[in-house]
Design a protein around this nucleic acid. Structure first.
Lengths: 340, 340
DNA sequence: TTGAAAGCGCTAACAA
DNA sequence: TTGTTAGCGCTTTCAA
């Protein structure tokens, strides 16, 4: 006896039509809420649907309509970062809320290997989604290129440095980094360094650029260390290195809160007190910022809004609205606490 | 002139056949790597595919084969928790790695409203996915019921209290909570309380049960507070309340590391020192645990392995392997640091 | 080894 | 207002 694993074969529109004593066309009209259906017919179909337990087969519908009412969100993060990045969750939720209101299904796809990258590209090409949002794309990112090459409606969160003419939303990292560095300088620091990260992304590059421009003449490349990841470890090791290179350092801009948290611990282990000996500022205003000792001065970025706007950009394209390609920059805010 | 927004209409298998001078059947055979295709035919088709830029239309394929080679992962979390839960990311990555190896696409679906819940149920019924993994389902969760009702191959991470006969993987929260509470007691604490959370889930209920059993006679319901969320705020407010109820409290089991972090801050604000005055232990061994001052004693749960095993359970069902329904319990480990 | 043809379940003309 | 019908792009017999 074969194991009983046959799912009760799903009812089709045909079964519903039979049960209701009407044609498939009429059933289809009811399902899609179209006009020109009599009240009786509608009622009969609706009861038949419940009776046979009908669920529309979306594959068939997609095949016919060429639309899926789904939007993909591609997250391309190296492992450790994915787990720590406080913004991703908020972006996701923001995106979902906008899409949900428009009755689109958000499907998140994570890329964690080259294999994933290829499979996701196929998935996108296969008509599973009508549009796509890409977050944290990096320079030379194959998925970013694939998306633009396919011509599928898309919006990027952040701006991959090597892609032209795309729709994206982001924050002005240069400006934000400049602002917080300037504020740090206001506390009277003389030797200010930076722990940079992710220089292959716009966010990383731009934060460094902002830092540099705020320092102007005083910028000293010796006082900048960098690493690929916005992580605690980056902060820990970066700060140790900075301390070695310049024992008299008295101010640090960490490219993220997680990095700042690591730097704080390195400072603690070196017996420096914050903010008395060294002032430190972060970036993100994540949950971490408040829980550090002392609480972090940092830059707040509106992650949920970023997600919402990216979703809206895709929706606009789907509706055929022009939605001028190019970027939308959202404002950030310096949050001043006690770490500097 | 209408705006030029027509995506170059995708090439079909038909175009490939024409370009290769062969039939659609042969093209299909090549695409699916089937035997009985001559070398010349294969080469011709492959070059034709490149030439016309063919990407298989998955909707059509699914319609025919009734399979999508995709597995859904449903995350059902109230907002704030989603952003803080350190396990979700690891579960996601674990799941993805197993599925990816089996050449399945993981698609994550987030439920953040009733509307989402309905839409996701339709999505699952619509043939977009062959199987589904549900994480953090709660008692009475409609999506859990929908999934089991549909009879779609599924695995749960954690065990919704009201669902019978389902496949799930989890940790033994009772045992783990018992173990760490016992260890806390070993430090000589006399008045030990708990900040519980999420009592509508197995994890929350079971951690409380383990705490209670470890305390035995000494269990005092007055020393237990609870809140719906595993959050920092729960810890902050819970600890304040506990301090009010029992100023002589000297030990606390926090149901998660985030809660413990909040409790730590409440203790600090009350001028109590940890671990001298009060010993505190958490749960999760998240990134937080190490960054607290002092570092947290906690329970490590193998979140990535949980994800991997859940994926495997679904894959087994998809392959028609029996995969006895019921639970798999993974081991946890008490990590002892300096907070108690 | 290949081609021809019959649908998968659905929508959207077109007729009635 | 409803029924009929022709595919959407693909896989999969069955014949050749």
């Amino acid at each position: 006896m074969p194991p009983e694993r046959t799912r009760p074969k799903a009812a089709t529109i045909h079964d519903v039509a039979a049960a209701a004593g009407l044609s498939r066309g009429t059933v289809s009209r009811v399902i899609n809420g179209e006009p020109y259906v009599s009240e009786e017919a509608r009622a009969a179909v609706e009861s038949a649907i419940r009776q046979v337990g009908y669920v529309p087969n979306t594959a068939a519908r997609n095949l016919k309509t060429k639309r899926s009412r789904a939007v993909g969100l591609i997250v391309h993060e190296p492992h450790p970062l994915f787990l720590e990045d406080p913004n991703i969750g908020a972006i996701l939720l923001g995106t979902n809320s906008v899409l949900s209101k428009a009755d689109y299904q958000l499907v998140s796809l994570i890329i964690d290997s080259e294999r994933d990258s290829d499979r996701v590209a196929d998935y996108l090409g296969g008509g599973f989604v009508d549009g796509v949002i890409v977050i944290s794309a990096r320079a030379g990112d194959p998925i970013g290129r694939a998306v633009t090459a396919m011509g599928i409606p898309a919006a990027f969160v952040g701006h991959p440095p090597d892609l032209e003419g795309i729709a994206y939303v982001g924050i002005d990292n240069v400006h934000a980094a400049h602002a917080i560095t300037e504020r740090l300088l206001l506390t009277g620091r003389r030797r200010v360094g930076m722990i940079a990260a992710a220089l292959d992304r716009d966010s990383g590059r731009d934060r460094l650029a902002g830092f540099r421009s705020a320092l102007g003449e005083r910028f000293d490349p010796e006082l900048v260390v960098d690493s690929p990841l916005y992580s605690y470890r980056t902060g820990l090791e970066g700060m140790r290195e900075l301390l070695k290179r310049a024992p008299d350092i008295d101010g640090v801009f960490a490219a993220s809160d997680a990095i700042a948290a690591g730097a704080l611990d390195a400072l603690r282990e070196a017996g420096r007190s914050v903010p008395a000996d060294v002032g430190i500022v972060g970036f993100d205003d994540s949950a971490w910022a408040l829980r550090c000792q002392p609480p972090l001065s940092t830059v707040r970025q509106p992650a949920d809004l970023l997600g919402q706007m990216a979703a809206q950009r895709v929706l606009d394209q789907l509706d055929g609205k022009p939605s001028a390609p190019g970027g939308t920059m959202l404002d950030t805010e310096v949050i001043w606490r006690e770490s500097a």
